[in-house]
Simulated scan of single mutants.
Amino acid sequence: MIEGTLGFIGTGTITEAIITGIFAVPDRAADILVSPRNAEVAAKLAARYPSVRIAGSNQEIVDAADMLFLAVRPQIAEEVIRALRFRPGQRVVSLIAAVHDAKLTEWIDQKVEIVRAVPLPFVADRTGVTMIYPPEPRAASFFAGLGTAVECETQNEYDLLAAASALMGTYFGLLERTTEWLTSQGISEQKSRNYLAPLFASLGRTSVISQDRSPGDLRREFSTKGGLNEQLFREFEQGGGTEALTAALTSVLLRIKT
């Protein structure tokens, strides 16, 4: 359920995805204010959804919003946020990557309720998973309506999941390299994609619905003893694939924490 006015400072890809997901439910009513900075995206959203309005300024959004989303780029976040006047107790959801609570609190300079969230683009079709920190019922309910919400109990949990979310490019990288290998062997790129994309999607769905089985259990279940799946993973691991993966995750985590 959405109550009150939602305000978005920053009208980029994630803001567009969230708003698209909100109105994916037929006859959904929501009062939404968006910033004018990205005029093209703001105009498109206002034209598509009658209850989306373009504010005259960012301060107008802060003044009107019951739930305020900060969705600006990290490079300009301090400049944008310091220029605004927030209300005591205001609910602020930060979607700004790699900006921790201490910085946000300093820039906002007011006693507000800060929740950090990392919604992924899939919230547009209400299948996204969003991690939030700290746990907060209203923010969790909001993002659960756009897919799945995972409430992190500690900053460390939040940072670890943020590092894991960096696997999206690697996922498509595996698809890319496998497609390249297939095409080098004589199969067309389109036919390769027609096979691989549903295969990967089915494996993802299996993981989602098999919460009672560990990833290791699923790997063994999908790998016949002495079979091809077992061979490929063994050679991938022996070739340094899993070691490279964990090293990269550790490196990304260090970057997030520092």
Rank of each mutant, 00 (worst) to 15 (best):
L253S: 12
I32A: 02
A98I: 04
V92R: 13
I132L: 03
E79K: 08
V52I: 14
E79W: 05
V112K: 07
D66W: 07
I76Q: 12
L203Y: 03
V129W: 00
L104K: 06
Q231H: 12
V123T: 07
L254Q: 15
N58M: 03
R138Q: 11
R193Q: 10
F122E: 10
R220K: 15
P88E: 13
P135V: 01
A65F: 10
I2L: 13
G226A: 05
K191M: 08
I76T: 15
A244F: 00
A247D: 05
E180L: 10
L167S: 12
Y195E: 03
T170G: 15
T179V: 11
F69D: 04
A166N: 00
E136G: 02
R126D: 03
L70K: 11
F172V: 02
A42T: 05
V62M: 14
P36A: 15
I22G: 02
G204D: 00
R219N: 08
M1Q: 08
Q110L: 09
I209C: 02
L146H: 04
P74T: 12
D109W: 08
N156C: 02
S214F: 03
R116P: 01
S141N: 07
T127R: 14
R37A: 08
L174K: 04
Q155M: 12
P198C: 11
A247Q: 12
R73A: 14
T11F: 03
A144Y: 04
A139T: 14
A30T: 08
M67W: 02
L174G: 07
R73Q: 10
L228S: 13
A166F: 01
T258C: 03
Q59G: 04
S51F: 12
Q211K: 14
T246G: 04
E40G: 12
